[in-house]
Design a protein around this nucleic acid. Structure first.
Lengths: 216, 216
DNA sequence: GGTCGAATTTGCGTGATACGCAAAATTTCT
DNA sequence: AGAAATTTTGCGTATCACGCAAATTCGACC
């Protein structure tokens, strides 16, 4: 048995397996929903795809929607971590912008059609995700997940600015606002006719925020 | 029993009855949830309370949560209307602030304990609503409802600023941002120990937004 | 005032889901 | 290896959302 070689998996095999199962379930949920449409996917199918029992699915997620947006949650959690990793000397809004953009540099796991460029999601996938996320049933899950992640971002902002999450409006307001920028940019990206890189919209949105949203 | 909320019912009795039923269901859902806790309320109970069949409930709302937050949706819809009613000469952020605050002046229908002052919701009610809204199952509905209403606000902003909802980031970004301010202010109001009026937090949040969220 | 057409309510049936509970299986600790 | 802790699993149950078609209610027009 090999002792931890690299990044310390402090908790060992058990925790790792749990994360793997979680990821497998979330990924399977999204993939199946893109393929068949959300309500032609049964929890049973997702569980089978991930190699666990249907009952186990509900040990991880309490609904299909929750499973699908779980990946988004993790990414946004990453934003909080990235923000904390930014040098303290960098101005807040620069740090926020850089941390946010960093999250969208790596598109881990996107299926790529044979021969397509790595890192450039193909049309089939983008269209499918678009359709799935447009589902009203998922909107709630999406925003709920965002809100949860934004709480972590708020904590990071509070630390960085010396404010208090429970006493001051500032940190949560900034976090929610940044979340809004991400969602709006993603909205535009999903609905745009032309394939504008999402980072462009994102930069623009954050710039507008930091400028006080002046009337154009 | 239930007093109609609007004046000009162009379409006559039919439409009026529909609105009354909708309001009665939404109100019953909230009241029962505050009394017993969300998951000790059955759709059947809500329907009975409103005097319709259980099946009819689902003709209006597709879940308990949707019914409960419906009142919030209506109020936020009112914000869009209020914004359109603001004089065109008023600067955008002043108009937004005034329209938003106007929504919170009228606390229609809050139950008041015998002998309590009109317009001042009693502790029992506030605490109950707090508990209900804290329910994770409602968070999603809340944000989903907010997002829907914010789409209308975005349209109003687009009209006022001569921008295009589908082409420009601006209107939706502002709308979502205002929505964030409302939610954050309400968060503080719900969780605050001392009964600070919500309008204070609201003003503060909107002021911060228009100022570009400078680090305090 | 009476009658027809449209919208709404209602009852019923179906497919699906979330979750409590306790037994079985798997991992960790000593 | 053996015990303890954690996770998976199967099963049963209470809900729930929604399609469908019949019954009821409403509005308009003669």
């Amino acid at each position: 048995m090999v002792v931890s070689t690299e990044g310390g998996d402090r908790a060992g095999l058990r925790e790792r397996k749990k994360q793997e199962t979680r990821a497998a379930l979330s990924w399977a949920a999204l993939r199946l929903a893109v393929e068949r449409g959300l309500d032609d996917v049964r929890v049973e199918d997702i569980a089978a795809e991930a190699g666990v029992s249907p009952r186990t699915f509900n040990n991880y997620f309490s609904s299909k929607g929750e499973a699908i947006v779980a990946r988004h949650v993790d990414r946004t959690r990453g934003l909080a971590a990235e923000l904390r990793a930014q040098p303290a000397s960098k101005p807040l809004w620069d740090a926020i912008t850089d941390a946010t953009l960093a999250q969208f540099q790596v598109q881990e796991g996107f299926p790529v059609q044979d021969g397509a460029q790595e890192g450039v999601p193909d049309m089939w996938w983008v269209t499918g995700v678009r359709r799935v996320l447009a589902e009203p049933a998922l909107q709630g899950e999406w925003f709920k997940a965002s809100a949860a992640a934004e709480a972590e971002i708020a904590a990071a902002i509070a630390d960085r600015t010396g404010t208090d999450v429970t006493r001051d409006l500032y940190p949560l307001l900034v976090a929610r606002t940044v979340g809004a920028a991400v969602t709006v940019a993603m909205d535009h990206w999903l609905h745009a006719d032309s394939p504008v890189p999402i980072t462009t919209s994102l930069r623009e949105a954050l710039r507008l925020l930091a400028a006080g949203l002046p009337v154009p």
